[in-house]
Design a protein around this nucleic acid. Structure first.
Lengths: 147, 147
DNA sequence: GCATAAGTGGGTAAAAGTGGGTAGCGGGTG
DNA sequence: CACCCGCTACCCACTTTTACCCACTTATGC
């Protein structure tokens, strides 16, 4: 069971290559075959899934109704933005220009480990996202955990 | 298990030829024998199926009732617009003038990988389709996935 | 403090994508 | 029936992108 955690400030080079932090690589299952799926995440970031985790997600998409317009829209958006990338000799993935643009990423990125996925943010965007929360961490925790 | 994903801006030349992106070709089963069926898709786009996937679809159509007028209409529309095309030496398929016109495609196309099929859009049409959605991607995801 | 691993950057051969020419086939017409 | 025209499939040539390799710098751990 992979379980990503931590945050890392890394860089994306002019060819769109980004290193996967060694601390995160540790948790990637050999089943993933060094392959990652990068797609659009929620709130202007990118989500990176190891292949085995992605396959689970894809299984739920396949259950959706192909005749329901909302389901179609969701499936299209998720898949249209997805690209597959295998680690190169230096443990990097290549992110397409379109996805980088979608997340507003230039050179610097903030990489977050979030359980079964890795999120890639423009650091500035992430800071703004945090500041935009109307409630404090403590209050949200109370709502979410309900204990 | 083929599983198309990703979006690609490609071109259709004056002869109606369109390259199948290498990233998508990877997932095409050898059973398809480099043959694709192109037909009318949902929401003003074209759907391209590798032969083996098309055969599965055709099997479900065969189950429909030939005495039900709605079934007849669906079957006719799907089949009347379907053409078969085999890859040429440069991995391209040829799309008929009629189908291109149906989808409002001129030179530029947006090719989407959507699980078992490939969709071909006029890029402008696709953008309008996205903008027409009443709900945000995040909200639709919440509805669709119900978690 | 040194050895090794991790992260970054760039060059190059191969693959992918695009465009055009031409021969052969089939359909239509005089 | 012969000829002409247009369409298609195949071939070739060119440009752009990608993937792989190597080299260097920085960080980590013993």
């Amino acid at each position: 069971m992979s379980s990503f955690k931590g945050s890392y400030e890394y860089s994306v080079d002019s060819k769109g290559r980004m290193n996967i932090p060694a601390r995160l690589r540790k948790y990637v299952s050999p089943d993933a075959n060094d392959t990652f799926i990068i797609t659009r995440g929620y709130e202007q970031c990118l989500s990176v899934y190891p292949l085995d985790e992605w396959n689970k997600l894809e299984e739920t998409i396949r259950q959706l109704s192909p005749t329901n317009p909302q389901h179609r829209f969701y499936t299209r958006t998720l898949l249209a933005n997805a690209i597959e990338s295998q680690l190169d000799g230096q443990s990097r993935i290549t992110i397409s220009r379109e996805l980088l643009q979608l997340a507003g990423i230039e050179n610097e990125v903030l990489i977050l480990g979030v359980l079964e996925r890795i999120e890639v943010w423009n650091p500035k965007t992430y800071r703004e996202y945090q500041e935009k929360q109307p409630e404090s961490y403590e209050n949200i925790a109370q709502t979410v955990l309900q204990k």
